[in-house]
Design a protein around this nucleic acid. Sequence first.
DNA 1: CTTAAATGATAGCATTACTATTATAATTGC
DNA 2: GCAATTATAATAGTAATGCTATCATTTAAG
Lengths: 224, 224
Amino acid sequence: MNRFQNKITLNICEMVFIKDPNSSELGRNILKGSIDLIDELGFEDFTLKKLSKGISSTEASIYRYFESKHHLLSYLILWYWGWQEYRMILSITNIDNSKEQLKRVVKILTEEIKEDSNFAEINEVKLNRIVIAEASKIYLKKQVDHDNSLGFFKKYKEVVQMVSEIITSINSTYKYPHMLVSTIIEGAHHQRYFAQHLPSLTDVIDNEDSITTFYQKLALKEIQ
Amino acid sequence: MNRFQNKITLNICEMVFIKDPNSSELGRNILKGSIDLIDELGFEDFTLKKLSKGISSTEASIYRYFESKHHLLSYLILWYWGWQEYRMILSITNIDNSKEQLKRVVKILTEEIKEDSNFAEINEVKLNRIVIAEASKIYLKKQVDHDNSLGFFKKYKEVVQMVSEIITSINSTYKYPHMLVSTIIEGAHHQRYFAQHLPSLTDVIDNEDSITTFYQKLALKEIQ
DNA sequence: CTTAAATGATAGCATTACTATTATAATTGC
DNA sequence: GCAATTATAATAGTAATGCTATCATTTAAG
């Protein structure tokens, strides 16, 4: 299982980091510490100085792994999508029915995340909250085209592509598979955030994961 | 028409500004200049110092209108939703069929914006680009609950509520109207941004506003 | 035409994001 | 086992940012 982890992690485009954070103790501390601190403070108030104190290192040392705090966040998001891709692949292995496949991947992309003990230094619950609250900030920037050319969004695009292909195998004439998938993914993140902070923008129903239910049904109705 | 404008503008919760920017020449210059500059530089690289140079004023003077650049952006977004609400109301006046009403408001919320000559100091095309690229940054912050209590998101919530009521009047048993509406609004913004910068996350089709078409159809299928 | 309010000019301050330099520890090669 | 390389720590520094404070000047209202 750890080999799979390394595979995912190392597959992360090398443009995101200067030195692979998975290759050393300090690197792994940076990952763990930054997840804790970004989750706690939000990305605006998170600084590499605070992080360096938290992990008993120095700013300069962290800069040998990541060019900037923007690169560090990009790495975490990229890791997250690699992990989601891996979970999606596992969840549809040996499932032949395309509609069932779609239901399962939509569940993975919209459900509340539980900790995955396979990856020690990553707290997936916190990382999921970071993706919900901070991920859009990495592409809503003027540098987006440059970062895109360096592969910062590669894993996210692969996830969207994978679900789009399932949709196409259900209905080969459906015209908007990518639009539907990115709408579901971003939508689910927004709904989880709104449920916490702006509840009048969503519909939270007790004893039901209404977000997953909503998007599963929506996907099936839409492509019919 | 200008009275209506003032009504919209002044209805903006007074907590967002210190001094009403619509009440003076300098205030209006701040609005116009900030829209130009945020659109040009992005919110990160936009500073009140640069703005003050652009409008031949000073940082200190701008701070007499807005507590921070975050407040200024919040004002612009609030203005935008007030304006959208006004356009939505106009567009369904005298239309009795609820499905037609829904089609029309979804169009307004998802279409590409054209300049509205009724509001001189606001360039709606640029403001729309700002809303697409920057609006989520005002609520994806740790202060969101505080800002919410001050009414920063009031107009946005009203817009969502208005469309939700149309949906309920089409199908009174539909369980997720707010979720559907906020999914459509945020989704459409993402799709416009993706079409420009990350086209593999969307499906752009020539000679058709595929974004509006997609969300109009999706809304009707979903609530059936 | 006086007085208050609005704006401008200038300075300053703590923090941020990042770089540079030098010292010390840990690894690796032989 | 020791030199040589590399990784990390310690410290200092810089330009820019976000914002505040002070005081002078212009403008507008009574």
